[in-house]
Design a protein around this nucleic acid. Structure first.
Lengths: 338, 338
DNA sequence: CAACGTGAGTGAAACGATTCAATAACTCGT
DNA sequence: ACGAGTTATTGAATCGTTTCACTCACGTTG
């Protein structure tokens, strides 16, 4: 049924070696022979079997990117950046959505391992994952995406944005507007990004000599729109006096959820509640009240990840892991001023 | 370097066949032997080489889904539906973003072909693509997603929503509100979905005895937010008298773009311009002015696609292609009434 | 006790492309 | 016309798994 190089060789009256040469090193095959082979390929509808190639080569041409939530435009933008870099080297990007679930993440990593991927980019749920270590130990390039370089992390490369600074920018902006109490909404029990952003908020408060009392933490179960709605519900349930009139959100999806809930309750933004998002996704500017948000250079993040991955692959065992960190910036819109 | 079954066999003191049995048919291996093998596997950190398995098996365990725009939440939701179905059968979903570019689409299909995927779901840019036909001819299940069953299309299965009806619902709603002129924005030069939705708008106009004059078509270059902004700019540039005060958009991203532009010009929605979107993505409800939109059952669409794909694979050559069509519905929000 | 079954394990062959040392077929210069 | 040098082609070996016909050792049975 399946057409193989053998069939092509037979039809063209050459050896399999020659067919392979036509496929991989066309120069070095006499034009006349080449045409004959190409004719046979076309006539038979031959298509290379990638499994066989990979088996022989000992590795594939894929790289994988495991994200927390494929429905979050932030990650698709980063993916675009990685894809650009990978494509230039003839590699193909395989996107995997962990839905912020450690088991799924593990499954995907297992898949990647079995597929002998060339490298893995990941924004992990569980960075202590066995297989992740396993990958790294086997010399498969692993790049942590969207994580600021962890202290002693010498197992892999990373690209990230300074999340503490991002949180601080957001909070300082609100403090400058005169807010005395600031809430932070995010999944800070599980995601380091959220932990850092919260730390930034606290740092801003501290730098103005304000203690813990001025901050309220709204822990969420995830970082999606629905989680934002429920966080806002909890916020609004606080006694009026102690309720912060400003919220920093761990990402824009949360912010959109908070916004919906707040408006739905008949309150006004930013008059009654000011909101700062994070990521500045395309929809942030188009929201009911355009969102003030912390911008991250998404495309650059992806490009840098691809660059690091390729470099590690290139350098082999002698490679020294690198950590690239970008700076966030604040975009001010109507959700905080006006 | 790489640990293979051979190494495992040697360490466990059994033959490679037995190792394979432990891996694939654990019952039928004496517990004592099995433990020895499993021990060796753990000790050596053995990991199956999927390329070799696939080569031997003659097929992979992947299915591919080629979308027009991975940043459009509509597609990620459909993907989730497909993923559900595929996962249940032990298959892995591979997402590919064509960016509405025929060349990219073709590249991905080539990849899939070489990988010997088990099936392909696709929302095509170019449904006449050679490789797509090639896939189908080779007996690889192909499912067209988000396309109403084309007339004589007997090459593959399809799942879709009645786009003509969707367009009609949108337009009828506006006509009921008293609008006399209706604009349609979308990439109707390339995307059949958009062509159909436009046809629906026209049908609605015709059913009220209104001729072509009452419709204005704003052709866009794609279906993203930026395309919506430029379409709106063109709309607003029309002489006041002839300018429609209602727009049906080919999808919600376009609608969000239109909304942004219209508001940015200081006009009001829906007072000055009423807007209807399409898809009802999560962000539609959270927009500056919550969008009236045509809902499609995204998850069901994906699930149905997976079901069709698996059925075709199951039935083999005797399979008769099926076409599943869902009905759209309208969700009315503030962008049209209020 | 010979014939038969059964359960456990073996090992060579196969999957399809690539590689590479070994030819074969040329062309030159002398 | 001979050897050296170049270019084009060959085909066996290889990658790691799975499969399957086979062996072997033990009962069971008539």
């Amino acid at each position: 049924m399946a057409v193989s190089v053998k069939d092509v060789a037979k039809l063209a009256g050459v050896s399999v070696g020659t067919v392979s040469n036509v496929l991989n090193r066309p120069t070095g095959v006499r034009p006349q022979t080449r045409e004959r082979v190409e004719g046979a390929i076309a006539q038979l509808g031959f298509i290379r079997n990638d499994s066989a190639r990979q088996l022989r080569a000992g590795r594939s041409r894929m790289i994988g990117y495991v994200v927390l939530d494929a429905a979050n435009p932030f990650f698709t933008d980063v993916a675009r950046g990685i894809d650009e870099g990978a494509r230039a080297e003839g590699l193909v990007l395989f996107l995997a959505d962990s839905h912020q679930d450690a088991d799924r993440e593990d499954q995907f990593l297992e898949q990647f391992l079995e597929q002998r991927v060339r490298g893995v980019c990941i924004t992990p749920v569980d960075s202590g994952n066995r297989r992740l270590l396993s990958l790294a130990e086997r010399g498969v390039p692993v790049v942590m995406v969207d994580r600021a370089p962890a202290s002693q992390e010498d197992r892999w490369c990373s690209v990230g944005v300074d999340d503490v600074l991002g949180g601080e920018l957001a909070a300082r902006h609100l403090l400058d507007l005169g807010h005395e109490r600031i809430a932070y909404a995010g999944d800070s029990r599980r995601l380091p990004q959220s932990v850092d952003r919260l730390a930034g908020v606290r740092r801003a408060l501290a730098s103005r000599g304000m203690d813990e009392d001025h901050g309220v933490v709204l822990h969420t179960e995830g970082m999606r729109v629905a989680d934002g709605r429920s966080a806002a519900a909890r916020l609004l349930a606080l006694p009026r006096r102690r309720r912060p009139r400003a919220v920093v959100c761990g990402n824009d999806l949360l912010a959109l959820g908070v916004l919906q809930q707040v408006i739905g309750q008949g309150l006004r933004v930013p008059a009654d509640v000011a909101i700062v998002g994070y990521d500045d996704i395309e929809f942030a500017a188009a929201a009911a009240v355009p969102l003030t948000s912390v911008v991250q250079p998404r495309l650059e993040l992806g490009r840098a990840a691809a660059r690091l991955l390729l470099r590690e692959e290139d350098e082999g065992p002698g490679h020294v892991h690198e950590h690239v960190s970008f700076e966030p910036a604040l975009v001010v819109r109507a959700s905080t001023v006006g």
